[in-house]
Design a protein around this nucleic acid. Structure first.
Length: 187
DNA sequence: CTTTCGATGATCT
DNA sequence: GATCATCGAAAGG
């Protein structure tokens, strides 16, 4: 499934990462507006796909528009949307969203009340939305996922990515400049 | 406000 | 055996 929610998931990861800002993402009815993303593609030393397919990163190599979920630091789950083309492994990490639907479920899963901390970071977001390895490889085009057309956001800026040690200077993190729900402010 | 550090386990060398 | 696309608590200024 190449196109979804008005986005071409065979486009370069940076384009997809930019286009996803403002889209509404839900998992079983729980979710909100994507406000922060990061692009990773096969030419990028920081990307899981950089050294080619392995059991962990296999879903990054296709098909596009599917979820790539991996375990981070042995504790957290992180959600990507695959945006590969022709065997070129790539994806966009969903780093933060503005909660809009299912706030009670999010609060319960996170053990927190503060809406600003429910989905501000990839691990927090996955916990709030109930995402686990079970979602790895599932298409975003149907249940339990729902991805709907982005509201056009004009105040999107890019900056350096977070938590990586390679290719640290690439400006491949995208976010809504004045959102209160970012994992960290943009530079 | 900032920095540091422990938790915790799959993955790859 | 080392390295993490993280988080939260604790300690320090």
């Amino acid at each position: 499934m190449r196109r979804l929610a008005g986005i071409d998931f065979e486009a370069p990861a940076t384009e997809v990462a930019r286009a996803l800002i403002g889209a509404d993402l839900q998992v079983d009815g729980v979710g909100g507006l994507i406000v922060e993303t990061e692009a990773y593609d096969e030419d990028d030393p920081a990307s899981h796909s950089h050294r080619g397919p392995t059991p962990r990163n296999a879903t990054m190599f296709g098909p596009p528009g599917h979820a790539y979920v991996y375990r981070s630091y042995g504790l957290h789950w992180c959600l990507n949307i695959v945006c590969c083309r022709a065997g070129h492994g790539a994806g966009v990490l969903i780093r933060a969203l503005e909660p809009r639907h299912g706030l009670d479920a999010m609060r319960q899963r996170r053990g927190l009340a503060d809406p600003r901390l429910l989905c501000a970071g990839p691990g927090r977001l996955a916990q709030a939305l109930g995402i686990t390895k079970a979602h790895d490889g599932l298409p975003l085009s149907g249940p339990p996922f729902a991805l709907s057309l982005a509201t056009l956001m004009h105040d999107v800026r890019c900056g350096v990515r977070i938590g990586i040690s390679l290719a640290v200077e690439q400006p491949w993190r995208f976010g809504l400049v004045n959102s209160r729900f970012l994992s960290r402010p943009l530079r």
